[in-house]
Nucleic acid binder design. Structure first.
Lengths: 260, 260
DNA sequence: GATTAGGTTTCATAATACGCAACAAATTGG
DNA sequence: CCAATTTGTTGCGTATTATGAAACCTAATC
Protein backbone atom coordinates (compact mmCIF):
# COMPACT_ATOMS: atom_id res chain seq x y z
CA UNK A 1 0.00 0.00 0.00
CA UNK A 2 1.36 3.39 -0.80
CA UNK A 3 3.01 5.33 1.96
CA UNK A 4 2.29 8.97 2.60
CA UNK A 5 5.51 9.82 0.80
CA UNK A 6 4.26 8.47 -2.51
CA UNK A 7 0.53 8.76 -2.57
CA UNK A 8 -1.43 7.35 -5.48
CA UNK A 9 -4.61 8.81 -4.08
CA UNK A 10 -4.92 12.44 -5.11
CA UNK A 11 -5.06 14.58 -2.00
CA UNK A 12 -8.18 16.48 -1.04
CA UNK A 13 -7.27 19.89 -2.34
CA UNK A 14 -9.57 21.82 -0.03
CA UNK A 15 -7.96 20.28 3.01
CA UNK A 16 -4.49 21.07 1.69
CA UNK A 17 -5.51 24.63 1.05
CA UNK A 18 -7.06 25.03 4.47
CA UNK A 19 -3.90 23.73 6.13
CA UNK A 20 -1.76 26.00 3.97
CA UNK A 21 -3.83 28.94 5.17
CA UNK A 22 -3.32 27.95 8.79
CA UNK A 23 0.39 27.48 8.31
CA UNK A 24 0.77 31.07 7.14
CA UNK A 25 0.16 32.20 10.71
CA UNK A 26 3.41 32.11 12.62
CA UNK A 27 4.94 33.34 15.83
CA UNK A 28 6.37 36.25 13.85
CA UNK A 29 3.09 36.98 12.03
CA UNK A 30 0.18 35.81 14.16
CA UNK A 31 -2.44 37.89 12.30
CA UNK A 32 -3.13 38.13 8.57
CA UNK A 33 -5.86 39.44 6.30
CA UNK A 34 -7.74 37.80 3.43
CA UNK A 35 -5.88 39.69 0.73
CA UNK A 36 -2.47 38.97 2.21
CA UNK A 37 -3.25 35.24 2.42
CA UNK A 38 -4.64 35.32 -1.10
CA UNK A 39 -1.38 36.75 -2.42
CA UNK A 40 0.86 34.39 -0.49
CA UNK A 41 -1.00 31.28 -1.52
CA UNK A 42 -1.96 32.38 -5.02
CA UNK A 43 -5.62 31.73 -4.30
CA UNK A 44 -8.58 33.94 -5.11
CA UNK A 45 -9.72 36.26 -2.33
CA UNK A 46 -13.18 34.71 -2.35
CA UNK A 47 -11.70 31.24 -1.94
CA UNK A 48 -9.60 32.36 1.01
CA UNK A 49 -12.48 34.28 2.55
CA UNK A 50 -14.80 31.29 2.39
CA UNK A 51 -12.22 28.94 3.81
CA UNK A 52 -11.45 31.29 6.67
CA UNK A 53 -15.15 31.54 7.44
CA UNK A 54 -15.42 27.76 7.70
CA UNK A 55 -12.22 27.47 9.73
CA UNK A 56 -13.63 30.14 12.03
CA UNK A 57 -16.90 28.23 12.44
CA UNK A 58 -14.79 25.21 13.37
CA UNK A 59 -12.74 27.31 15.82
CA UNK A 60 -9.43 26.64 14.06
CA UNK A 61 -9.08 30.32 13.29
CA UNK A 62 -10.74 33.37 14.69
CA UNK A 63 -10.94 37.02 13.83
CA UNK A 64 -9.39 39.63 16.04
CA UNK A 65 -12.31 42.02 16.68
CA UNK A 66 -9.89 44.92 17.15
CA UNK A 67 -7.94 44.58 13.92
CA UNK A 68 -10.38 42.62 11.78
CA UNK A 69 -7.59 40.25 10.89
CA UNK A 70 -7.57 36.49 11.19
CA UNK A 71 -5.43 34.43 13.56
CA UNK A 72 -5.20 30.80 14.68
CA UNK A 73 -7.99 29.79 17.03
CA UNK A 74 -8.21 28.00 20.34
CA UNK A 75 -9.87 24.97 18.78
CA UNK A 76 -6.40 23.94 17.67
CA UNK A 77 -5.29 23.86 21.28
CA UNK A 78 -7.86 21.27 22.22
CA UNK A 79 -6.88 19.05 19.31
CA UNK A 80 -3.21 19.49 20.12
CA UNK A 81 -3.91 18.61 23.73
CA UNK A 82 -5.23 15.25 22.60
CA UNK A 83 -2.21 14.77 20.32
CA UNK A 84 0.19 15.60 23.17
CA UNK A 85 -1.67 13.37 25.56
CA UNK A 86 -0.65 10.25 23.72
CA UNK A 87 3.08 10.94 23.93
CA UNK A 88 4.50 8.60 26.54
CA UNK A 89 7.86 10.32 26.63
CA UNK A 90 6.21 13.57 27.56
CA UNK A 91 4.19 12.08 30.40
CA UNK A 92 7.22 10.20 31.65
CA UNK A 93 9.50 13.24 31.55
CA UNK A 94 7.12 15.79 32.98
CA UNK A 95 7.59 15.00 36.70
CA UNK A 96 11.34 15.53 36.39
CA UNK A 97 11.52 18.75 34.46
CA UNK A 98 11.23 21.12 37.38
CA UNK A 99 13.97 19.31 39.27
CA UNK A 100 16.30 19.76 36.33
CA UNK A 101 15.36 23.43 36.05
CA UNK A 102 16.15 23.87 39.74
CA UNK A 103 19.48 22.09 39.38
CA UNK A 104 20.61 23.96 36.27
CA UNK A 105 18.50 27.13 36.38
CA UNK A 106 18.05 26.86 32.64
CA UNK A 107 15.14 26.02 30.37
CA UNK A 108 14.49 22.30 29.91
CA UNK A 109 12.69 20.80 26.90
CA UNK A 110 11.47 17.46 25.67
CA UNK A 111 11.47 16.99 21.90
CA UNK A 112 10.58 14.27 19.40
CA UNK A 113 11.35 13.60 15.76
CA UNK A 114 8.53 14.34 13.36
CA UNK A 115 9.02 14.22 9.60
CA UNK A 116 12.54 15.51 9.42
CA UNK A 117 12.20 18.04 12.20
CA UNK A 118 12.64 18.28 15.91
CA UNK A 119 9.38 19.21 17.71
CA UNK A 120 9.18 20.44 21.30
CA UNK A 121 6.50 18.58 23.21
CA UNK A 122 7.17 19.73 26.75
CA UNK A 123 9.12 22.45 28.51
CA UNK A 124 9.90 24.01 31.83
CA UNK A 125 11.28 27.53 31.66
CA UNK A 126 14.30 28.88 33.48
CA UNK A 127 13.36 31.36 36.23
CA UNK A 128 16.02 33.75 34.99
CA UNK A 129 14.86 36.75 33.00
CA UNK A 130 17.13 35.90 30.05
CA UNK A 131 16.13 32.37 29.02
CA UNK A 132 15.43 30.08 26.13
CA UNK A 133 11.71 30.15 25.24
CA UNK A 134 11.27 26.96 23.29
CA UNK A 135 7.49 26.75 23.12
CA UNK A 136 5.57 23.53 22.73
CA UNK A 137 5.09 22.87 19.05
CA UNK A 138 8.19 24.72 18.02
CA UNK A 139 10.03 22.97 15.20
CA UNK A 140 13.79 23.16 14.82
CA UNK A 141 16.21 21.50 12.41
CA UNK A 142 17.88 18.23 13.26
CA UNK A 143 21.46 18.79 12.16
CA UNK A 144 22.29 21.87 14.21
CA UNK A 145 20.42 21.57 17.51
CA UNK A 146 21.42 19.43 20.46
CA UNK A 147 18.03 17.73 20.55
CA UNK A 148 18.17 17.18 16.83
CA UNK A 149 21.61 15.63 16.96
CA UNK A 150 20.64 13.41 19.90
CA UNK A 151 17.69 12.19 17.81
CA UNK A 152 19.85 11.65 14.72
CA UNK A 153 22.40 9.70 16.74
CA UNK A 154 19.71 7.15 17.50
CA UNK A 155 18.92 6.51 13.83
CA UNK A 156 20.49 4.14 11.31
CA UNK A 157 22.42 5.63 8.40
CA UNK A 158 19.47 4.90 6.13
CA UNK A 159 16.96 6.55 8.41
CA UNK A 160 19.26 9.51 8.79
CA UNK A 161 19.59 9.96 5.05
CA UNK A 162 15.81 9.87 4.73
CA UNK A 163 15.22 12.70 7.18
CA UNK A 164 18.10 15.08 6.45
CA UNK A 165 17.94 17.69 3.69
CA UNK A 166 20.64 17.85 1.05
CA UNK A 167 22.57 20.09 1.26
CA UNK A 168 22.48 20.77 4.99
CA UNK A 169 21.43 24.41 5.41
CA UNK A 170 23.68 26.78 7.28
CA UNK A 171 21.96 28.77 10.02
CA UNK A 172 25.06 30.40 11.52
CA UNK A 173 28.74 30.40 10.51
CA UNK A 174 29.16 27.51 12.97
CA UNK A 175 26.56 25.21 11.42
CA UNK A 176 28.01 21.90 10.23
CA UNK A 177 27.01 21.54 6.59
CA UNK A 178 29.38 18.72 5.60
CA UNK A 179 27.58 15.39 5.88
CA UNK A 180 30.74 13.43 6.68
CA UNK A 181 31.67 15.76 9.52
CA UNK A 182 28.14 15.55 10.85
CA UNK A 183 28.20 11.73 10.66
CA UNK A 184 31.43 11.58 12.65
CA UNK A 185 30.02 13.99 15.18
CA UNK A 186 26.91 11.80 15.57
CA UNK A 187 29.02 8.70 16.13
CA UNK A 188 30.80 10.55 18.94
CA UNK A 189 27.44 11.63 20.40
CA UNK A 190 26.21 8.05 20.30
CA UNK A 191 29.32 6.91 22.20
CA UNK A 192 29.20 9.58 24.87
CA UNK A 193 25.43 9.55 25.21
CA UNK A 194 24.75 13.29 24.86
CA UNK A 195 25.02 16.15 22.34
CA UNK A 196 26.30 19.66 22.90
CA UNK A 197 25.66 22.44 20.38
CA UNK A 198 27.13 25.92 20.63
CA UNK A 199 25.62 28.54 18.31
CA UNK A 200 25.13 26.21 15.34
CA UNK A 201 21.44 27.05 15.00
CA UNK A 202 21.17 30.52 16.46
CA UNK A 203 23.73 33.05 17.53
CA UNK A 204 24.11 33.32 21.28
CA UNK A 205 22.20 30.08 21.92
CA UNK A 206 23.63 26.79 23.21
CA UNK A 207 22.25 23.56 24.55
CA UNK A 208 22.95 20.02 25.66
CA UNK A 209 20.60 17.07 25.06
CA UNK A 210 20.44 13.34 25.77
CA UNK A 211 18.13 10.63 24.42
CA UNK A 212 15.11 9.19 26.17
CA UNK A 213 14.69 5.51 25.27
CA UNK A 214 11.67 3.26 25.25
CA UNK A 215 11.44 -0.28 26.55
CA UNK A 216 13.10 -1.54 23.36
CA UNK A 217 16.02 0.83 23.70
CA UNK A 218 14.92 2.97 20.77
CA UNK A 219 15.36 6.73 21.01
CA UNK A 220 11.86 8.13 21.25
CA UNK A 221 12.55 11.64 22.52
CA UNK A 222 15.26 13.84 23.95
CA UNK A 223 15.69 15.90 27.05
CA UNK A 224 17.58 19.15 26.56
CA UNK A 225 18.91 21.99 28.68
CA UNK A 226 19.19 25.27 26.77
CA UNK A 227 20.18 28.87 27.38
CA UNK A 228 22.26 31.79 26.25
CA UNK A 229 25.87 30.97 25.36
CA UNK A 230 27.25 33.60 27.69
CA UNK A 231 25.87 31.60 30.66
CA UNK A 232 26.69 28.13 29.40
CA UNK A 233 30.07 28.56 27.79
CA UNK A 234 33.28 27.19 29.15
CA UNK A 235 32.88 24.46 31.76
CA UNK A 236 29.34 25.34 32.79
CA UNK A 237 27.58 23.24 30.21
CA UNK A 238 29.74 20.21 31.08
CA UNK A 239 28.51 20.38 34.67
CA UNK A 240 25.04 19.59 33.25
CA UNK A 241 26.14 16.25 31.80
CA UNK A 242 25.73 14.20 34.95
CA UNK A 243 22.35 15.51 36.09
CA UNK A 244 21.04 15.31 32.52
CA UNK A 245 22.14 11.71 32.02
CA UNK A 246 20.84 10.72 35.44
CA UNK A 247 17.49 12.15 34.51
CA UNK A 248 17.26 10.60 31.05
CA UNK A 249 18.24 7.24 32.55
CA UNK A 250 15.48 7.57 35.13
CA UNK A 251 12.90 8.58 32.55
CA UNK A 252 13.97 5.77 30.22
CA UNK A 253 13.74 3.30 33.12
CA UNK A 254 10.22 4.58 33.84
CA UNK A 255 9.43 3.73 30.22
CA UNK A 256 10.68 0.20 30.62
CA UNK A 257 14.22 0.52 29.31
CA UNK A 258 16.71 -1.77 31.01
CA UNK A 259 20.42 -1.52 30.37
CA UNK A 260 21.78 -4.98 29.73
CA UNK B 1 -21.50 41.12 7.85
CA UNK B 2 -22.84 37.92 9.24
CA UNK B 3 -21.23 36.49 12.29
CA UNK B 4 -20.07 32.92 12.48
CA UNK B 5 -23.35 32.11 14.23
CA UNK B 6 -25.41 33.02 11.17
CA UNK B 7 -23.31 32.54 8.12
CA UNK B 8 -24.75 33.38 4.73
CA UNK B 9 -21.75 31.86 3.03
CA UNK B 10 -22.15 28.10 2.81
CA UNK B 11 -19.31 26.46 4.63
CA UNK B 12 -16.67 24.46 2.81
CA UNK B 13 -17.97 20.97 3.42
CA UNK B 14 -14.64 19.23 2.99
CA UNK B 15 -13.08 21.37 5.70
CA UNK B 16 -15.99 20.67 8.03
CA UNK B 17 -15.67 16.98 7.41
CA UNK B 18 -11.94 16.98 7.98
CA UNK B 19 -12.37 18.79 11.29
CA UNK B 20 -15.15 16.40 12.28
CA UNK B 21 -12.77 13.51 11.65
CA UNK B 22 -10.09 15.09 13.83
CA UNK B 23 -12.55 15.78 16.61
CA UNK B 24 -13.44 12.11 16.86
CA UNK B 25 -10.02 11.51 18.40
CA UNK B 26 -10.19 12.15 22.11
CA UNK B 27 -8.23 11.56 25.27
CA UNK B 28 -10.41 8.51 25.87
CA UNK B 29 -10.09 7.25 22.28
CA UNK B 30 -6.85 8.49 20.78
CA UNK B 31 -6.80 5.91 17.93
CA UNK B 32 -9.52 5.06 15.45
CA UNK B 33 -9.83 3.19 12.16
CA UNK B 34 -11.38 4.19 8.82
CA UNK B 35 -14.48 2.07 9.27
CA UNK B 36 -15.13 3.32 12.79
CA UNK B 37 -14.85 6.95 11.68
CA UNK B 38 -17.04 6.20 8.68
CA UNK B 39 -19.78 4.86 10.94
CA UNK B 40 -19.59 7.67 13.45
CA UNK B 41 -19.69 10.42 10.86
CA UNK B 42 -22.02 8.70 8.41
CA UNK B 43 -19.50 9.17 5.60
CA UNK B 44 -18.39 6.62 3.04
CA UNK B 45 -15.24 4.67 3.92
CA UNK B 46 -13.52 5.88 0.78
CA UNK B 47 -14.29 9.48 1.69
CA UNK B 48 -12.84 9.01 5.17
CA UNK B 49 -9.85 7.12 3.84
CA UNK B 50 -8.96 9.85 1.35
CA UNK B 51 -9.37 12.60 3.90
CA UNK B 52 -7.20 10.80 6.41
CA UNK B 53 -4.53 10.36 3.75
CA UNK B 54 -4.49 14.10 3.09
CA UNK B 55 -4.56 14.95 6.79
CA UNK B 56 -1.63 12.56 7.23
CA UNK B 57 0.32 14.24 4.44
CA UNK B 58 -0.30 17.54 6.21
CA UNK B 59 0.80 16.02 9.55
CA UNK B 60 -2.51 16.68 11.28
CA UNK B 61 -3.03 12.98 11.75
CA UNK B 62 -0.70 10.04 11.56
CA UNK B 63 -0.98 6.30 11.50
CA UNK B 64 0.26 4.22 14.38
CA UNK B 65 2.57 1.74 12.64
CA UNK B 66 1.91 -0.85 15.34
CA UNK B 67 -1.87 -0.85 15.23
CA UNK B 68 -2.53 0.53 11.76
CA UNK B 69 -4.99 2.97 13.25
CA UNK B 70 -5.07 6.72 12.84
CA UNK B 71 -4.42 9.28 15.56
CA UNK B 72 -3.91 13.03 15.79
CA UNK B 73 -0.52 14.18 14.53
CA UNK B 74 2.20 16.43 15.80
CA UNK B 75 1.52 19.03 13.14
CA UNK B 76 -1.37 20.15 15.30
CA UNK B 77 1.03 20.90 18.11
CA UNK B 78 2.98 23.37 16.05
CA UNK B 79 -0.18 25.19 14.98
CA UNK B 80 -1.46 25.19 18.55
CA UNK B 81 1.89 26.56 19.73
CA UNK B 82 1.35 29.58 17.52
CA UNK B 83 -2.22 29.95 18.77
CA UNK B 84 -1.08 29.79 22.40
CA UNK B 85 1.75 32.19 21.74
CA UNK B 86 -0.60 35.06 21.12
CA UNK B 87 -2.38 34.76 24.47
CA UNK B 88 -1.15 37.60 26.65
CA UNK B 89 -2.76 36.25 29.78
CA UNK B 90 -0.82 33.06 29.42
CA UNK B 91 2.53 34.75 28.98
CA UNK B 92 1.80 37.10 31.86
CA UNK B 93 0.72 34.30 34.21
CA UNK B 94 3.40 31.81 33.39
CA UNK B 95 6.20 33.22 35.62
CA UNK B 96 3.94 33.00 38.67
CA UNK B 97 2.50 29.54 38.33
CA UNK B 98 5.29 27.64 40.00
CA UNK B 99 5.23 29.97 43.00
CA UNK B 100 1.55 29.29 43.47
CA UNK B 101 2.12 25.56 43.14
CA UNK B 102 4.82 25.77 45.81
CA UNK B 103 2.56 27.78 48.11
CA UNK B 104 -0.51 25.55 47.73
CA UNK B 105 1.00 22.25 46.54
CA UNK B 106 -1.90 21.90 44.14
CA UNK B 107 -2.28 22.08 40.37
CA UNK B 108 -2.62 25.61 39.00
CA UNK B 109 -4.28 26.45 35.67
CA UNK B 110 -4.91 29.41 33.45
CA UNK B 111 -8.11 29.28 31.38
CA UNK B 112 -9.95 31.48 28.88
CA UNK B 113 -13.45 31.63 27.49
CA UNK B 114 -13.87 30.26 24.00
CA UNK B 115 -17.27 29.80 22.41
CA UNK B 116 -19.23 28.86 25.46
CA UNK B 117 -16.52 26.78 27.05
CA UNK B 118 -13.63 27.17 29.42
CA UNK B 119 -10.28 26.24 27.79
CA UNK B 120 -7.08 25.56 29.70
CA UNK B 121 -4.18 27.45 28.18
CA UNK B 122 -1.48 26.95 30.80
CA UNK B 123 -0.85 24.72 33.79
CA UNK B 124 1.63 23.79 36.45
CA UNK B 125 1.03 20.43 38.06
CA UNK B 126 1.02 19.68 41.76
CA UNK B 127 4.03 17.59 42.86
CA UNK B 128 1.72 15.31 44.80
CA UNK B 129 0.94 11.93 43.26
CA UNK B 130 -2.82 12.51 43.48
CA UNK B 131 -3.44 15.71 41.52
CA UNK B 132 -5.64 17.45 39.04
CA UNK B 133 -4.35 16.88 35.46
CA UNK B 134 -6.01 19.67 33.52
CA UNK B 135 -4.10 19.47 30.28
CA UNK B 136 -3.65 22.42 27.93
CA UNK B 137 -6.51 22.44 25.48
CA UNK B 138 -8.93 20.74 27.85
CA UNK B 139 -12.42 22.20 27.64
CA UNK B 140 -14.77 22.31 30.60
CA UNK B 141 -18.22 23.79 31.07
CA UNK B 142 -18.71 27.31 32.40
CA UNK B 143 -21.54 26.92 34.88
CA UNK B 144 -20.01 24.29 37.16
CA UNK B 145 -16.27 24.93 37.29
CA UNK B 146 -14.53 27.60 39.32
CA UNK B 147 -12.74 28.97 36.27
CA UNK B 148 -15.97 28.93 34.33
CA UNK B 149 -17.85 30.81 37.01
CA UNK B 150 -15.06 33.36 37.38
CA UNK B 151 -15.30 33.95 33.63
CA UNK B 152 -19.10 34.20 33.71
CA UNK B 153 -18.97 36.67 36.58
CA UNK B 154 -17.07 39.05 34.32
CA UNK B 155 -19.76 39.01 31.63
CA UNK B 156 -22.90 41.10 31.22
CA UNK B 157 -26.27 39.36 31.54
CA UNK B 158 -26.61 39.42 27.76
CA UNK B 159 -23.20 37.93 27.15
CA UNK B 160 -23.91 35.28 29.74
CA UNK B 161 -27.18 34.30 28.11
CA UNK B 162 -25.38 33.98 24.80
CA UNK B 163 -22.78 31.54 26.06
CA UNK B 164 -24.76 29.34 28.46
CA UNK B 165 -26.76 26.34 27.30
CA UNK B 166 -30.44 26.01 28.18
CA UNK B 167 -31.14 24.03 30.28
CA UNK B 168 -27.90 23.95 32.26
CA UNK B 169 -26.69 20.34 32.22
CA UNK B 170 -26.15 18.50 35.48
CA UNK B 171 -22.76 16.81 35.81
CA UNK B 172 -23.07 15.75 39.46
CA UNK B 173 -25.92 15.94 42.00
CA UNK B 174 -24.32 19.21 43.17
CA UNK B 175 -24.40 20.97 39.81
CA UNK B 176 -26.44 24.18 39.84
CA UNK B 177 -28.98 23.86 37.03
CA UNK B 178 -31.32 26.71 38.03
CA UNK B 179 -30.38 29.86 36.12
CA UNK B 180 -31.59 32.21 38.86
CA UNK B 181 -29.55 30.47 41.53
CA UNK B 182 -26.52 30.54 39.22
CA UNK B 183 -27.03 34.27 38.54
CA UNK B 184 -27.14 35.04 42.28
CA UNK B 185 -24.06 32.93 42.82
CA UNK B 186 -22.22 34.85 40.07
CA UNK B 187 -23.16 38.19 41.63
CA UNK B 188 -21.61 36.99 44.90
CA UNK B 189 -18.49 35.83 43.04
CA UNK B 190 -18.18 39.23 41.37
CA UNK B 191 -18.38 40.94 44.78
CA UNK B 192 -15.87 38.71 46.53
CA UNK B 193 -13.54 38.42 43.56
CA UNK B 194 -13.15 34.63 43.43
CA UNK B 195 -15.17 31.46 42.79
CA UNK B 196 -15.12 28.20 44.71
CA UNK B 197 -16.65 25.03 43.32
CA UNK B 198 -16.95 21.77 45.23
CA UNK B 199 -17.85 18.69 43.18
CA UNK B 200 -20.27 20.46 40.83
CA UNK B 201 -18.48 19.24 37.70
CA UNK B 202 -16.82 16.05 38.82
CA UNK B 203 -17.11 13.95 41.95
CA UNK B 204 -14.15 14.32 44.26
CA UNK B 205 -12.87 17.43 42.49
CA UNK B 206 -12.82 20.99 43.81
CA UNK B 207 -11.22 24.26 42.84
CA UNK B 208 -10.96 27.98 43.43
CA UNK B 209 -10.43 30.56 40.68
CA UNK B 210 -10.04 34.32 40.31
CA UNK B 211 -10.13 36.56 37.23
CA UNK B 212 -7.16 37.97 35.38
CA UNK B 213 -7.97 41.41 33.97
CA UNK B 214 -6.53 43.35 31.07
CA UNK B 215 -5.63 47.02 31.00
CA UNK B 216 -9.30 47.89 30.49
CA UNK B 217 -10.39 45.89 33.50
CA UNK B 218 -12.05 43.21 31.39
CA UNK B 219 -11.80 39.60 32.49
CA UNK B 220 -9.58 37.93 29.92
CA UNK B 221 -8.61 34.74 31.73
CA UNK B 222 -8.72 33.05 35.11
CA UNK B 223 -6.18 31.57 37.44
CA UNK B 224 -7.36 28.46 39.28
CA UNK B 225 -6.08 26.12 41.97
CA UNK B 226 -7.56 22.64 41.75
CA UNK B 227 -7.29 19.32 43.48
CA UNK B 228 -9.15 16.44 45.08
CA UNK B 229 -11.90 17.44 47.48
CA UNK B 230 -10.51 15.34 50.31
CA UNK B 231 -7.45 17.65 50.40
CA UNK B 232 -9.23 20.95 49.84
CA UNK B 233 -12.38 20.59 51.89
CA UNK B 234 -13.10 22.44 55.07
CA UNK B 235 -10.93 25.51 55.64
CA UNK B 236 -8.05 24.47 53.38
CA UNK B 237 -9.43 25.98 50.20
CA UNK B 238 -10.11 29.29 51.97
CA UNK B 239 -6.42 29.56 52.87
CA UNK B 240 -5.79 29.79 49.10
CA UNK B 241 -7.88 32.96 48.71
CA UNK B 242 -5.19 35.43 49.71
CA UNK B 243 -2.29 34.00 47.69
CA UNK B 244 -4.58 33.51 44.68
CA UNK B 245 -5.89 37.07 44.77
CA UNK B 246 -2.41 38.46 45.30
CA UNK B 247 -1.25 36.61 42.26
CA UNK B 248 -4.14 37.56 39.99
CA UNK B 249 -3.69 41.20 41.05
CA UNK B 250 0.00 41.01 40.17
CA UNK B 251 -0.68 39.36 36.81
CA UNK B 252 -3.43 41.86 36.02
CA UNK B 253 -1.08 44.71 36.94
CA UNK B 254 1.54 43.26 34.60
CA UNK B 255 -1.12 43.45 31.89
CA UNK B 256 -1.76 47.11 32.59
CA UNK B 257 -4.75 46.90 34.90
CA UNK B 258 -4.85 49.64 37.49
CA UNK B 259 -7.39 49.63 40.32
CA UNK B 260 -8.96 53.07 40.53
C1' DG C 1 -15.06 63.75 -1.60
C1' DA C 2 -12.71 60.72 -4.69
C1' DT C 3 -9.97 56.92 -4.97
C1' DT C 4 -8.04 52.79 -3.45
C1' DA C 5 -7.89 48.67 -0.86
C1' DG C 6 -9.79 44.93 1.69
C1' DG C 7 -13.32 41.71 2.35
C1' DT C 8 -17.91 39.51 1.27
C1' DT C 9 -21.51 37.62 -1.57
C1' DT C 10 -23.96 36.10 -5.88
C1' DC C 11 -23.83 33.34 -9.80
C1' DA C 12 -22.55 30.14 -13.35
C1' DT C 13 -19.62 26.50 -14.22
C1' DA C 14 -15.26 24.03 -14.04
C1' DA C 15 -13.25 20.95 -11.31
C1' DT C 16 -13.19 18.41 -7.40
C1' DA C 17 -14.88 15.30 -4.01
C1' DC C 18 -17.73 11.75 -3.78
C1' DG C 19 -20.01 7.07 -3.60
C1' DC C 20 -19.98 2.75 -5.71
C1' DA C 21 -17.84 -1.31 -6.85
C1' DA C 22 -13.98 -4.01 -7.03
C1' DC C 23 -9.96 -5.39 -5.06
C1' DA C 24 -6.16 -6.40 -1.67
C1' DA C 25 -4.72 -7.38 2.81
C1' DA C 26 -5.53 -8.51 7.46
C1' DT C 27 -8.22 -10.65 10.93
C1' DT C 28 -11.26 -13.98 12.79
C1' DG C 29 -13.28 -18.31 13.68
C1' DG C 30 -13.95 -23.09 12.89
C1' DC D 1 -4.85 -24.32 7.79
C1' DC D 2 -8.49 -22.43 5.25
C1' DA D 3 -12.79 -20.06 4.42
C1' DA D 4 -15.34 -16.25 5.70
C1' DT D 5 -15.45 -11.74 7.20
C1' DT D 6 -13.80 -7.23 7.96
C1' DT D 7 -11.00 -3.36 7.02
C1' DG D 8 -8.93 -0.24 4.09
C1' DT D 9 -7.57 1.34 -0.63
C1' DT D 10 -8.19 2.60 -5.40
C1' DG D 11 -10.31 3.21 -10.22
C1' DC D 12 -14.00 5.32 -12.35
C1' DG D 13 -17.90 8.11 -13.68
C1' DT D 14 -20.62 11.80 -12.26
C1' DA D 15 -23.13 14.54 -8.92
C1' DT D 16 -22.08 18.00 -6.22
C1' DT D 17 -19.14 21.18 -4.42
C1' DA D 18 -15.66 24.62 -4.60
C1' DT D 19 -14.19 28.02 -7.39
C1' DG D 20 -13.19 32.47 -9.90
C1' DA D 21 -15.21 36.46 -11.83
C1' DA D 22 -17.84 40.20 -11.07
C1' DA D 23 -20.35 43.09 -8.33
C1' DC D 24 -20.96 45.08 -4.12
C1' DC D 25 -20.05 46.94 0.57
C1' DT D 26 -17.16 49.05 3.97
C1' DA D 27 -13.08 51.17 5.56
C1' DA D 28 -8.91 53.55 4.83
C1' DT D 29 -6.16 56.86 2.45
C1' DC D 30 -5.02 60.96 0.01
Amino acid sequence: MSSSANPTTPPVQSIQRAVAIMRCFTEAEPELGVTELSKRLNLHKSTVSRMLTTLQQERLVDKNPETGKYRLGLGLISLAGVALGRLNARAAAQPYLNDLVETTRETVNVAVLDRGECVNIERAFSPQPIRYMGWIGRRTPLHCTASGKALLAGLTAEERTAVLPTPLPAYTPKTITDMNILTQSLAQIDRQGYAIVNEEYEAGFSSIAAPIRNHLGQVMATLAISGPTYRLEGETITTFITPLLQMTRQISADLGYRVM
